[in-house]
């Protein structure tokens, strides 16, 4: 009985440690935690470029995370929080940039390239098929005679 109790107490203490290492912020509910995680993944660290602020250890990223937590607590919606960041750091901080005249190529460029690739592929396939149909695969009478002779020769050598 005592052993079981000791094991249970040890197990509880482990759980506490694991939780403290992960959770630095106390959220009201899981939905808020999820929004926090989504926002910190969508926003880019201005100092350590190519890292999102969830991932970065830079002091500025920590400040921005704290700021997001604060605004979530104030009941701001995602759009307001993203606008707050963009107002200060520019479009650069968005990993999901808004669709605008400057960013449409970013959004549609890959699709356009893919479509272009399919068009080229289709053209090549069509041309190949055309050639295959045009090229006569039947042997002419002359050719058949030559072939018969050649095969005959082979046979006499056996």
């Amino acid at each position: 009985m005592r052993r079981w109790l000791a094991a249970a107490v040890l197990g509880l203490s482990l759980a506490g440690v694991a939780k403290a290492a992960i959770d630095t912020y106390q959220f009201r509910d899981d939905a808020e935690r999820e929004r926090y995680q989504q926002l910190t993944k969508e926003l880019r660290c201005p100092k350590c470029q190519n890292q999102d602020i969830a991932d970065s250890n830079a002091p500025i990223a920590a400040d921005l995370r704290r700021e997001i937590f604060r605004m979530l607590g104030e009941g701001k919606n995602n759009q307001q929080i993203v606008d707050f960041m963009v107002d200060r750091y520019g479009d650069f901080v968005r990993y999901k940039p808004a669709l605008s005249g400057r960013t449409w190529l970013l959004w549609f460029g890959p699709g356009i390239l893919l479509a272009g690739g399919f068009v080229v592929l289709a053209l090549i396939v069509r041309r190949r098929r055309g050639q295959a149909v045009a090229g006569n695969t039947e042997l002419s009478a002359d050719e058949r005679e030559r072939l018969a002779k050649l095969l005959d020769k082979e046979r006499t050598h056996d």
């Binding site: 201005p46 100092k47 500025i60 400040d63 921005l64 700021e67 200060r88 750091y89 520019g90």
Partner: peptide
């Protein structure tokens, strides 16, 4: 760092 944040300071 509150004014720095409002200024968009990153370093």
């Amino acid at each position: 760092g509150s004014l720095g944040l409002d200024l968009g300071v990153y370093g």
